[in-house]
């Protein structure tokens, strides 16, 4: 009565609900969409469908990127941009993390600070650019201030929400073990919320990149954004695209770094379920 196994193999189809996909195929598929993208781009240039002055070929862009780094000191611009991001982000985190944790832990702090913070969240940071320029001139301060303003209120809110979601049973367990308030804050609330804080930081760093480019395009002579605006004046589209490429790659690099940090700092977490 046995059914021949070869004749009736369990069906394998490309599109199947809930079916997993192997790692090998995931990599192949993920790479091929990029190959497809650059291939079509190159094809469009070679076949003359597009004006090469406006759309340089991808190889041309890579070539320009190399020239920028090798001959024109682009590394300095990249360094300045990264320093601006990190500088303002560190200050924002130094304020947002303790404040957010306290707001999420104690209703009194939340009631005092949150009406202020949540109102600021509705003001888009670029709205402050004119006044920041008036106050701080054209130096580093207005850029740092813009990045800071763009990030801090969201970061506070995210961290507050995550902190207030720490399960009450964990806190109550510590209470019935004889924990004092500050002990519980340090030994239960902070470690419980820390993975979520790192995730929030990762998300907000991506937002910081957005504000960085805005700041550098509007009022700067240095940095990646400023280089791109200079290139625009001379119709160097290949340099503009090289700038876009490098911003994308840096964003990706920071994201990878944060994911790595998360794995190193929180080995006890099920990383698959906490991506």
């Amino acid at each position: 009565m046995a059914v021949g196994r070869d004749d009736h193999a369990f069906r394998q189809r490309w599109f199947e609900f809930l079916a997993p996909i192997s790692r090998k195929w995931r990599i192949i598929l993920g790479t091929s969409i990029w190959i497809l993208f650059f291939g079509l781009w190159e094809l469009a240039v070679l076949s003359g469908w597009v004006n090469t002055l406006l759309v340089p070929s991808p190889l041309q862009v890579i070539n320009t990127l190399y020239e920028l780094f090798a001959e024109r000191g682009f590394l300095m611009d990249v360094g300045i941009s990264v320093a601006r991001i990190l500088g303002s982000f560190v200050v924002a985190c130094a304020i947002a993390i303790p404040l957010g944790v306290l707001m999420g832990s104690f209703k009194a702090v939340e009631s005092f600070v949150n009406p202020f913070v949540s109102a600021w969240r509705y003001l888009p940071a670029p709205a402050f650019i004119p006044i920041l320029l008036m106050w701080f001139g054209t130096g580093e301060l207005p850029k740092l201030a813009l990045l800071f303003l763009g990030v801090i209120f969201f970061l506070i809110t995210l961290i507050m929400d995550h902190t207030s979601q720490v399960r009450s049973e964990l806190i109550e367990t510590a209470m019935t073990l004889g924990g004092q308030r500050w002990q519980i804050l340090w030994t239960v609330v902070v470690p419980a919320v820390l993975p979520s804080i790192v995730t929030s930081m990762r998300q907000m760093l991506a937002i910081a990149w957005t504000y960085l480019v805005i700041a550098e395009i509007i009022a700067s002579t240095t940095g990646i954004g400023a280089m791109m605006m200079r290139a625009r004046r001379f119709l160097n589209t290949d340099e503009i695209m090289a700038g876009i490429l490098i911003i994308g790659l840096l964003g990706l690099a920071f994201d990878v770094m944060f994911r790595w940090l998360q794995r190193v700092l929180f080995p006890y977490l099920d990383q698959e379920g906490h991506a």
């Binding site: 399960r167 049973e169 964990l170 109550e172 367990t173 019935t176 239960v188 929180f266 006890y268």
Partner: peptide
């Protein structure tokens, strides 16, 4: 106190 929900500290 021991609760019904799991209260082990994951970390």
């Amino acid at each position: 106190m021991v609760f019904q929900a799991y209260t082990s500290f994951d970390w």
